[in-house]
Design a protein around this nucleic acid. Structure first.
Lengths: 187, 187
DNA sequence: CAACGTGGCGCCAGTCACTGACATGACCCG
DNA sequence: CGGGTCATGTCAGTGACTGGCGCCACGTTG
């Protein structure tokens, strides 16, 4: 038995994703996940705060990546340009993990409870982006609004990209941020 | 006993709000809510799908109001102008209900689980807005993006208004949509 | 090497959200 | 007045989640 629980943790994530695909989230019990991972149900809850969290691991890394990407965007850019730049960068990780992210997305999309959790995570990440913008001297109110708006564009791009992965995420990002400009230009 | 359960339903909502204020959401059981409302716990779940839903009633009305407000905005406006107009209108109901909405907001703000649910509701309402925009011949992708962006501005305005109700919601809405324009103009 | 601390885990009992099934009594309609 | 419908009460059950305890594998220290 490994000293650190990282092994069990990974097995739990794997088992959960498999079971959610096979039977759906609602028809899967935490006991079954634990059993497939070869651990006790109690151990499941030592690794993940609740049944949903098993699909949302690594959030801290994401937060850090986002904050860093925003912080390290070139000087002199306007808020949306900063965000486009940052999302291009963090999006690479997404493109690299597509084979893992895809079934995960499918399960989340099929389960209202998981969608709800995803929205909460996204809101939290948008807050990180807003804070990172403030660090770059974007005024308080504008930072929050830019972060949420930019995040909406980002999700739109990811959505378009999953439907049409051929073009690459960057192209869809450019498209989405262009739409943003269109909206404000005409309205 | 009244033929329709509307009476019990209202008592349940009242009892829930009170208890959530007194003890907090997590330290309140559905049995306690039902007891204070003078009904059986089972009846609680006949009226509300889960423990959180008791604070999110009337969503259907809101959806209808939003859709109508967007549909009835003057002709010839650009997407953001339509939304500003629609939010001005639906916002009046909010201003009228402030004494009820305020404690509700406080409870939600203090409870992560309720915030999560609120985000889900908001996402759903933004979808309604997007669909209403499409009905007005706004192109598909732009409609979704405009709805989400406009919704972010709306929330920002409501937030600012709760902190400073003196100015009226309309002023804050104007401010938020102006910020939106600023963002795109400079970026 | 031996004693010790620590951390991951199994186990058990308990609470609480939520559900399905059936019974009952109030109401409305013919 | 008889029958149907609807809100509710009652009860048993499932499953998510928690606290507490003890165990054992490991690393550390003397």
């Amino acid at each position: 038995m490994p000293r650190s629980g990282l092994e069990a943790r990974r097995r739990l994530q794997q088992a959960a994703l498999e079971l959610f695909q096979e039977r759906g989230f609602d028809r899967t019990t935490t006991a079954e996940i634990a059993a497939r991972a070869g651990v006790n149900e109690r151990t499941y809850f030592r690794h993940f705060a609740d049944k949903r969290e098993v699909l949302f691991d690594g959030e801290d890394d994401l937060r850090a990546s986002l904050a860093q990407a925003v912080a390290e965007a070139p000087e002199g850019l306007q808020p949306f340009e900063i965000l486009l730049c940052a999302f291009r960068r963090t999006g690479r990780a997404l493109e690299a993990n597509r084979s893992f992210a895809e079934p995960r997305f499918a399960v989340i999309a099929a389960t209202p409870a998981l969608r709800e959790r995803e929205l909460a995570k996204h809101a939290s990440l948008a807050d990180v982006v807003a804070e990172a913008l403030r660090q770059r001297a974007v005024p308080d109110r504008l930072a929050a609004l830019a972060a949420q708006t930019g995040w909406a564009a980002y999700r739109q791009a990811v959505q378009a990209w999953t439907n049409d992965p051929g073009q690459g995420l960057d192209a869809h990002l450019a498209q989405a941020f262009d739409d943003l400009r269109t909206l404000s230009a005409t309205g």
